[in-house]
């Protein structure tokens, strides 16, 4: 337990210091954290054995919500944008979740995919509102009335994201340990038994689905503010696939998994693109195969080995 905490602490310190040593990493890592949030949302549902192939839509909804507030409504406060983007994604998660969580397995995956592609099409076709495929620009927000340069704001955004990883990570950790969170594994192992225990699988899943949408929304808002531009491709199905991959690659046994997967993927991507502009897709693919072959529990498996603990109790096999 102590070693786990120390390891996590050291990892966070490295994360916090990395941009000081390699300034360009700040952007890459901000995006990695943003996608990590969305992948964490996917990982929550994976615990219940549900694969969402459409979670990029909540990432996109968070991003577009941030862009809309900044550009169309004139709301420029960082905190307001973050909170509102999260609430809006959660709201969409709740609405779509109402019917989506009735389905399981391939039907759940495909229906999520379908809804996400509707969102994608709307984002790319409603030219007057969403700017079409050219997207929307996101101005630099103010922080409690202070106007910052984009550079200074990026710094703030990065450290706020790290704080959010800790804070939201802790909350999700508590949630997973709560009866409501444990119900997710129960849905996966035996849904009928869960119902007989008097717990509604539907409402447990709806809660999880809404939370996972909110997490993706947080990620989307961070990405929008960091990139300064939102595009419909955020909601494209390949992005959703990327999120599932990130979650599985990182490992779904712990909160750190999706973030690990995300940081790993973003770094591999950056390195591959930097060194082999024409073969980057292949390098990323090979790296993924290596992880899948040698770390069947995801990168989180490495973490467990390092911290000397292996908690398989109460966790579904994928």
């Amino acid at each position: 337990m102590n070693r786990t905490l120390t390891l996590s602490g050291v990892a966070l310190i490295i994360l916090a210091l990395a941009p000081q040593i390699f300034p360009f990493l700040q952007f890459t890592l901000t995006i990695a954290i943003a996608k990590g949030f969305a992948a964490l949302g996917v990982a929550l549902l994976l615990r219940a054995g549900l694969i969402s192939l459409g979670h990029a839509m909540y990432y996109a909804i968070g991003a577009y919500a941030a862009a809309f507030m900044a550009q169309k409504l004139g709301i420029t406060d960082f905190a307001v944008i973050m909170i509102a983007a999260t609430v809006i994604s959660a709201f969409f998660g709740l609405v779509f979740g109402l019917f989506l969580v009735r389905y399981r397995a391939i039907f759940f995956a495909m229906l999520n995919l379908a809804v996400s592609m509707v969102i994608y099409s709307l984002a790319s076709k409603l030219y007057g509102i969403t700017g079409g495929t050219d997207g929307l620009r996101v101005a630099v927000p103010t922080i409690f009335g202070m106007e910052l340069s984009k550079d200074a704001f990026d710094g703030v955004l990065y450290y706020v994201s790290i704080v959010l990883v800790v804070a939201l990570g802790y909350l999700i950790h508590r949630y997973l340990k709560s009866p409501l969170g444990n119900a997710l594994s129960a849905v996966h192992s035996n849904e009928v038994r869960l119902e007989y225990l008097g717990v509604s699988a539907w409402s447990s899943l709806l809660t999880a689905y809404t939370i996972s949408a909110a997490l993706a929304g947080v990620g989307g808002a961070i990405a929008a503010l960091s990139i300064g531009h939102v595009l419909p491709e955020y909601a494209f199905w390949t992005e959703s696939g990327h999120l599932v991959l990130t979650a599985v690659l990182g490992g779904i046994a712990g909160i750190a998994g999706p973030f690990l997967g995300s940081v790993f993927l973003e770094l591999i991507h950056t390195i591959a693109v930097g060194f082999a502009a024409e073969a980057w897709n292949m390098i990323v693919g090979v790296a993924l195969l290596v992880v899948i072959f040698f770390l069947p529990r995801g990168l989180f498996g490495l973490f467990e080995r390092l911290s000397g603990q292996k908690a398989t109790d109460g966790e579904p096999k994928l």
């Binding site: 994360l15 800790v166 750190a256 940081v263």
Partner: peptide, 22 residues
């Protein structure tokens, strides 16, 4: 038990990306 970010992967990966700020 709290599980958070691992160092090993991060370290190895960061070391691979090199640049200097001059």
């Amino acid at each position: 038990m709290a599980h958070r970010t691992s160092i090993k992967t991060l370290l190895a990966a960061t070391a691979l990306v090199t640049s200097a700020s001059v």
